[in-house]
Design a protein around this nucleic acid. Sequence first.
DNA 1: TTCTAAGCGAGACGGTACGTCACGTCTTGTC
DNA 2: GACAAGACGTGACGTACCGTCTCGCTTAGAA
Lengths: 206, 206, 206, 206
Amino acid sequence: MPQKVTPDASRRSETARRAILAAALDLVGEVGYAKLTIEGIAAAAGVGKQTIYRWWPSKGSLLFDAFLTLATDGQEDQAAALPDTGDVMADLKMVLRATVAELNEPRYDQPMRALHTEIVHDPALAADYAKRLDEPMRELKKDRLRAAQRAGQVAEDVDLDVAVDMLFGPILNRWLQRTGPLTPEYADRVVETALRGLQPRKAEQF
Amino acid sequence: MPQKVTPDASRRSETARRAILAAALDLVGEVGYAKLTIEGIAAAAGVGKQTIYRWWPSKGSLLFDAFLTLATDGQEDQAAALPDTGDVMADLKMVLRATVAELNEPRYDQPMRALHTEIVHDPALAADYAKRLDEPMRELKKDRLRAAQRAGQVAEDVDLDVAVDMLFGPILNRWLQRTGPLTPEYADRVVETALRGLQPRKAEQF
Amino acid sequence: MPQKVTPDASRRSETARRAILAAALDLVGEVGYAKLTIEGIAAAAGVGKQTIYRWWPSKGSLLFDAFLTLATDGQEDQAAALPDTGDVMADLKMVLRATVAELNEPRYDQPMRALHTEIVHDPALAADYAKRLDEPMRELKKDRLRAAQRAGQVAEDVDLDVAVDMLFGPILNRWLQRTGPLTPEYADRVVETALRGLQPRKAEQF
Amino acid sequence: MPQKVTPDASRRSETARRAILAAALDLVGEVGYAKLTIEGIAAAAGVGKQTIYRWWPSKGSLLFDAFLTLATDGQEDQAAALPDTGDVMADLKMVLRATVAELNEPRYDQPMRALHTEIVHDPALAADYAKRLDEPMRELKKDRLRAAQRAGQVAEDVDLDVAVDMLFGPILNRWLQRTGPLTPEYADRVVETALRGLQPRKAEQF
DNA sequence: TTCTAAGCGAGACGGTACGTCACGTCTTGTC
DNA sequence: GACAAGACGTGACGTACCGTCTCGCTTAGAA
């Protein structure tokens, strides 16, 4: 017999839910991930701790929801597609510059770091993240690259997942590990290098 | 009255130091990062808590030292250089496959995840990591790429830091975020894609 | 706006009332007073918590009602009078032995202890107890003693309240505080000692 | 293997111990037993909760110690003996009046009620109470009655334990249950009735 | 070689947060 | 409108660790 009954979601207080997510974001920004406590979130949200424990299995999943809210808010249409001016390099530079800008945005910095920490140690959360945040974004990126393939700007035999990793992985790592400054210029360089490849070319086509 | 006396390193017990580092590695492997406690490490090492607090300013720096021990042990010469058979693609595949293998090694997995978590939230530790672990490895990688440049296998105008990030970033990210399986084949694909670039070529050269 | 509406007793569910009282008695016997909770009683009775809070102001008063039910059940005539065989000592021994037997009865033990605990800390409940449980029983006891006075077996100038206290107080205390075994023999001894008094007699009259 | 290691009493902080006992007494007097919390005591004593849990297994045993402190403080010689003027009735009246006065003393009232509540539900604590508080007092009372027996003022065949119960039981009950006012006159009446007994006498001797 | 001051193990201490339990109130839908 | 159900804000529970602080006990380097 299951002893942990699922609560009745239909009775859930929307007010409380929103207050909790907002408080979580505010607090992680203020005090950082290390000092982020459930107790603190509950207090800041004017909510009982139990109301948090009732609806979220872990701090990580709360953080995840909070982050989703942050990412989704304001963009109802939810980013239909990446820009396509016909020039794949220019478009990619724009996207990577936007990514860099977002990561440098204080409002996003702490929550994203917190979320990444949880993901690293919680495979279930990682799966959720992969499915609900990474996957959609990745598809948009792959869509743009597919268009570039059709336009003859990206080789047909390129594994687009690898391509996406190669474009965004360096950015994310540099941000997480602070191995160097995360600038628009760096984003440009990554795009250029990824597109052209490391090997020299006999005949330039650019 | 001075309240923070620098301890006299000459009197430091080497036995205790080693026991603590070993216990930290063992424990992080057994119980994971989230349940890793100073108290637990002290108990496992048969050591007083104060002995830990005396020599390490934070759990992260202890983890860092423990990790250093792990990485250094057994390889006295400390990895003189990366292999250079003259074929840069083959060599890079070997190195990335080795990296993948290491990340998949259970003995390394938990400690590295723990260390990365600390790095994400502690800039000072991140600087230490960049300087003492990332930097030396990065130099070796750049050395190999420089050799490839001299051999005409890598373009002269490539930013080698970007190149290294583009090769290893995808691997590290996939491991940290579990966005996909981390296989030798994936490593190969990354190397191939990075070398050739995403753009098509007018005249194939290989 | 009125916030405390008196509930309409005519609509009260007799089924729920009985289920609650029965559940309270069962539970206090099973888990003891310390772990007796309103939530537990409601669950055991298959009743909403509000139904309890609607009809009882405190756990003590619920316990009191439950205890009344227990004491009243089965004896419809409600103990018309104490036995009167003409021999006051024999009769009192019988009554005290019955009291001892009841207190040793597991079914009564926990509920009575629980009730006494509440009484000790709740003067209002104590008054209720005194009026509705203690008083009637005390009157029966005093009636028997009055009969004994008329029969010349008890002195005319004895304060009957004191007499009752002196007979039943020791029993109750020994039970509550477990200062010694609560046996029928002890009951006999109390009766004998109370009747004869502590002082020696010049001429025995037994 | 026992997992609950006994703490090292030699390292115990006397300051903390005293602060806790004092805070417990203060608080139980201020807020009453029902609202007495470990957390509150710890806060009032300026002590961590763990320090209480480390040294006392239950709230009851803490209350017991606190009460012992209260009862012992100031009377170093610890009540050598009860008064013996040669007149047992007068002496007993004095003792019972003192008992009544103590029970009516606000400083003692709440702590004693609290302690009694715990005793009622905790046999182990009851045994402790019987041994360390009840027993010594009982012996003093029995000593006085034994002297009275030697003086021919109390019958030789009286069970002194029963006698003590008969004298003090009524007082304690009336106080706990508030079945009536607890006055010096009531104490006198109990003594008189207990000594003379309920039965009439053929030849009065006093 | 003795003294003495440091590091050491142990662990008690004042704290903070944990995750759970029950409180008493409130709301929702059923009878 | 009483009822079963149960979510809510509140607050205490007892536990786990935090980082600091003594305690004796070795154990080395200066006297």
